[in-house]
């Protein structure tokens, strides 16, 4: 239906975590404008395999924008040239025919490269481990309607809970800060009544882990929110700041 497109791809190739990487240039032709960015890479890989070359490794899974796997840095931006989108939902019609596309892995010290465009993002899980939950065992919960939560509060909590953990915020930030990721979880739980018992400790522990992992500091440039596929607003960061200051400056009323 629509005219096939041609691209020059400059892709970061790195055999494994130990070896240094480099850019390789590939020419690719006959790409439908309706193909997704990942499907374009599929086509490239099929071609490379048939030529006896090593295909490009990249993370992907659901291909509908929710699993958070497909992180890559495309033409200088996390998840490519459109704001608030994942790579799998980026289509080739958003590029010019004949364009040179530079593809790099998400870069941050806590995100070591595994191969080519695949990075290890388990640092984000370790931040969650320090407190990104409500401590409740299965079976001990009261009736679901026992605690009413005003609709605006629930809606707002949802806005923060919708983070997909892709790491684009880290990749886009000039300091490689994981602030938006951490703040999204802190804010989600801070707004809900169920999150109150652990609220003070949670924010302190999660911030400490964020630093321990080696993420950079936040300097409020807002790049994260522009690239965030889940559209987590910057108010999450304000909420974390507020909670963090409050948790550290006010005396804990429950300490004997």
């Amino acid at each position: 239906m629509s005219k096939p497109m041609r691209f020059t791809l400059k892709i970061w190739r790195q055999k494994n975590a130990q070896e240094p990487g480099h850019f390789e240039t590939y020419e690719i032709d006959g790409i439908s404008p309706d193909a997704s960015f990942l499907e374009m890479l599929d086509v490239l890989n099929e071609k490379l395999i048939k030529e006896g070359k090593d295909p490009v490794a990249f993370d992907h899974d659901c291909r509908e924008g929710i699993c958070g796997s497909c992180g890559m840095f495309i033409n200088g931006r996390a998840h490519g040239p459109l704001p608030n989108i994942t790579t799998c939902r980026l289509y080739m019609r958003h590029f010019r025919d004949g364009e040179t596309i530079v593809i790099e892995p998400f870069r941050a010290k806590p995100f070591p490269v595994i191969k080519d465009l695949v990075v290890d993002r388990s640092a984000l899980d370790r931040i969650i481990q320090t407190g990104g939950y409500i401590s409740v065992n299965a079976g001990s919960a009261p009736d679901a309607n026992a605690i009413p939560i005003p609709k605006p509060v629930a809606d707002r909590a949802f806005d923060y809970a919708t983070c997909i953990g892709c790491g684009a915020c880290v990749a886009a930030c000039k300091n490689a800060s994981a602030m938006l990721f951490t703040a999204a979880k802190v804010s989600h739980l801070a707004l809900l009544p169920q999150g109150q018992p652990e609220r003070r400790e949670r924010v302190k522990k999660m911030v400490a882990q964020m630093d321990a992992e080696g993420f950079g500091h936040c300097s409020n440039t807002g790049a994260c929110a522009v690239e965030c596929p889940a559209k987590i607003p910057l108010t999450a960061i304000a909420q974390l700041q507020r909670d963090f200051i409050w948790a550290n400056l006010t005396p804990d009323p429950y300490v004997r």
Binding site: A138, A141, A144, I147, I149, A154, A157, H188
Partner: peptide
């Protein structure tokens, strides 16, 4: 259980 975990169901 899911509500106790803080899942923001529609209200």
């Amino acid at each position: 259980h899911c509500v106790a975990q803080g899942i923001p169901f529609a209200r």
